[in-house]
Amino acid sequence: MVAVSECGECAVAEDRRAATPEDGVLTRIGQAIMLHRAGDREEARNRFADLWQEIGPQGDAFHRCALAHYMADTQDDPRDELDWDLRALEAAEGFVTERPVVTGAPAGASNVADGPGPRHPLVALSAFFPSLHLNLAADYAGLDRPADARAQLLRARASVNALADGEYRQSLKDAIDRLERRIGRAAGPPR
Rank of each mutant, 00 (worst) to 15 (best):
A158Q: 14
Y168L: 14
M71Q: 09
R155K: 15
D148N: 13
A156F: 06
E90H: 07
I33G: 05
A109D: 08
D60Y: 04
R150K: 11
D77Q: 07
D60G: 10
S5K: 08
L136E: 12
L132T: 07
T103M: 03
G24T: 11
A92G: 09
A141H: 14
P146A: 08
F129L: 15
C7S: 14
R28Y: 05
E180M: 09
E98G: 11
D114N: 13
L35S: 04
S171D: 14
H120N: 13
D77F: 00
V96W: 04
P146W: 02
D40G: 01
E14V: 00
C65W: 01
A137G: 15
Q75P: 00
A72S: 14
Q58I: 01
R87N: 06
L67F: 02
G30V: 04
K173Q: 14
S159H: 08
D148Q: 13
D165V: 14
R99Y: 01
E90W: 03
R47D: 12
G30F: 00
N161Q: 12
V102T: 11
L153T: 06
D23M: 06
A88D: 03
I29P: 01
M71W: 06
R28I: 08
A32Q: 01
L125P: 08
R45L: 10
A49K: 06
E167G: 04
E167V: 09
